[in-house]
Design a protein around this nucleic acid. Structure first.
Lengths: 117, 117
DNA sequence: GCGTTATATGCATATATGCTCATATAAACA
DNA sequence: TGTTTATATGAGCATATATGCATATAACGC
């Protein structure tokens, strides 16, 4: 469907592994739910547990993964720890994927409509 | 680091799972290598085996995964099967992630430079 | 039909990853 | 000091997924 475009840039195998890792971090529903909850701004772990419906253990683990991937920042204040999105490209990434999925589904809906009608 | 932005759009748990799945497809180095090889245009399975250094079995499997995710199209011509990128957003996704990683590493390089100097 | 080439797939296995339970750390407070 | 609250982590289990070997399918030429 897509004709040859200008290759964005050359990518080493190592670079490719890093990119893959980044996508992997974004490939878990619970982590996406956490990011989504953080779209509105900084939240404590307990708030995120409430918002996502996950267990405290699991939420904490995923927050660690996101932080190690440099997608979140961690700020401790008394007993609480607050997390916030630190990488603005996360927003764009999700937008891009959402848009692509919407197109895909609207095409599929189109096919069903044609079959049905 | 990032102040509350306008929330891009509300996302159901189902939508989130679909987005996660899409990121998961992009989270394997071999699949990224295949996509990268296809940036220049349509290629046969054998060509991709040569370009990526993978086994025929493995390349075929990953091509299937990418095709089922609607990222590639499949065209059979005689004995050969040609694959091509069908979703232009793949280019943008990789660009975004590359850019984000570059920023991250230049910041880290900065820190090292400050420590060293 | 038979053989050859290109691609796909069933099965087995290894590795990674997510999840939970129980427990550890860490801060606040009495 | 001991207690409570908020968060993190070690260990074990379950599941997913990537990979390779052998083999199946499919198209072509003889």
């Amino acid at each position: 469907m897509v004709s040859p475009k200008k290759t964005p840039r050359p990518l080493s195998a190592d670079a490719m592994a890093l990119i893959a890792r980044r996508f992997a971090v974004l490939s878990e529903p619970m982590r996406l739910r956490l990011l989504h909850a953080l779209f509105a701004g900084e939240k404590s772990v307990n708030e995120l547990v409430g918002l996502t419906g996950g267990t405290q253990t699991n939420v904490s683990r995923h927050l660690q993964t996101l932080t190690q991937a440099h997608m979140l920042t961690r700020r401790k204040e008394g007993l609480q720890v607050f997390y916030a999105i630190s990488d603005p490209s996360i927003f764009q990434l999700c937008e891009l994927v959402c848009g692509s999925l919407e197109k895909q589904f609207s095409r599929q809906a189109d096919v069903f409509a044609r079959q049905g009608g």
